[in-house]
Design a protein around this nucleic acid. Structure first.
Lengths: 225, 225
DNA sequence: CGGGCGCTTGATTTGAATCAAACTGGGTGG
DNA sequence: CCACCCAGTTTGATTCAAATCAAGCGCCCG
């Protein structure tokens, strides 16, 4: 059975008073409209001028399309991340990455007024906004890195931290090589080659193309031929 | 005579009630501690766990240093931009870009409580945060997979919008070629070459290396050999 | 007046894109 | 049930854009 919106918000909202916490969770859950999306399905309707949304399960990619057909992924949203924190920019599109991606959407104003009544809700939005800036800045550093090799390693490290499936040693990548390539701004072939090279060097192991075991944790830090 | 902190905040704070606006401006100005920095001077002391700051004049670069000495600029802050919106990350450094850069710094908590008393102040911070996300996302698109040529053109276009000196046709770049290179993640020589190529093609004119007149506005949109 | 920083240009090298092709596994339809 | 198909992945060969190496110029500042 998959996690309910209430479960997630109970996890996300922090407050010392358990009663108020339960009330806030109930209020948020009541305001939420849940949507289920399947793979590569656009879910722009879920955000917009009047809408803000939160990923319950699965993953959502935020991206732009260049005139030449190039896709540039700017962010990957997973459980607990919010879509459309700022005003909607029509230049960006949202798509579910995997089947069974679930999203809770809210009326922006309604969520704001909930934030006034329950400070911990406003605080959650605030926290997610800050976290989003942090994530963008980090990704900018990754994008700026010189070699494709370093980009891929940094990406794996980042994913390891964000997903942390079991003990942090193994990551089940939620995305394809194409997604990684379009997120890092390099070619799919380069991603694949780099992964193979890392595997050969013993830095990682690939049980399946998506299942990455990170052996050499220090690999994330420095450059090497 | 240079603009005072009060002048700037009067410009930044929006409110229908002029009396309250003046009060808010006075309160903010009273809470500000002004610092003057010269070229390449670190101004980390001005932000931090307890500090948040606003650029009054000049410009500040936010950047990270890699272990190999590479400098990666993640943001350029100009008049009216805030430094340290999120909690301070020791991985990032701040430096004044030009002489006579002036910065107003605040105690974080004090500014927060001012935000409670004057909603327009909280709203200003909110607006700057959103704007910062927008800027980071845009820059991420620039950093993404496009040619160095496109990067430089997009950078000039972005700067044109942000600075808009006279009518938007000419830009006085606040930064060196080195800064541009470290912001775009390309080599200085490439920046220089690209600029020269754009000049030769008549897209831009360079009265001085820093003074760029943008002739062909459409140059920002599409690719071309 | 000298020095250094910022800028430009040229020659060479190299990392990654592109082009091309084969393999894998899971799902579908005959 | 099996064959096929296709999206995702991998590997190889070639090309090309940008980094690197190298050097000269102009100008502002000391």
């Amino acid at each position: 059975m998959s996690e309910t919106a209430s479960d997630l918000f109970y996890f996300l909202l922090h407050n010392s008073d358990p009663r108020e916490r339960r009330e806030a969770v109930a209020a948020v859950a009541a305001a939420a409209r849940e949507t289920r999306c399947h793979r590569n399905q656009p879910c722009n309707s879920v955000v917009g001028r009047h809408c803000i949304a939160c990923v319950l399960s699965g993953a959502v990619r935020k991206f732009a399309l260049r005139s030449n057909g190039q896709r540039q992924i700017v962010d990957l949203l997973i459980r607990g991340d919010f879509l459309g924190l700022g005003p909607a920019d029509p230049g960006f599109l949202f798509e579910a990455v995997s089947n069974g991606t679930r999203v809770a959407s809210f009326n922006r104003q309604r969520l704001n007024s909930l934030g006034v009544r329950f400070p911990m809700i406003a605080e959650l939005i605030q926290r997610c906004t800050i976290e989003r800036i942090r994530r963008l800045e980090r990704h900018l550093l990754i994008q700026g890195r010189i070699t494709a090799n370093e980009k891929v390693r940094a990406y794996l490290a980042e994913m390891g931290e964000r997903i942390a499936s079991n003990g942090g040693q193994a990551v089940e990548l939620p995305v394809t090589r194409y997604d990684i390539a379009d997120h890092l701004g390099i070619a799919v072939e380069t991603v694949s080659r780099t992964m193979t090279a890392l595997k050969r060097r013993g830095c990682i192991a690939l049980r399946t193309p998506r299942h990455v075991e990170i052996h050499d944790t220090s690999m994330l830090s420095e450059s090497s031929a």
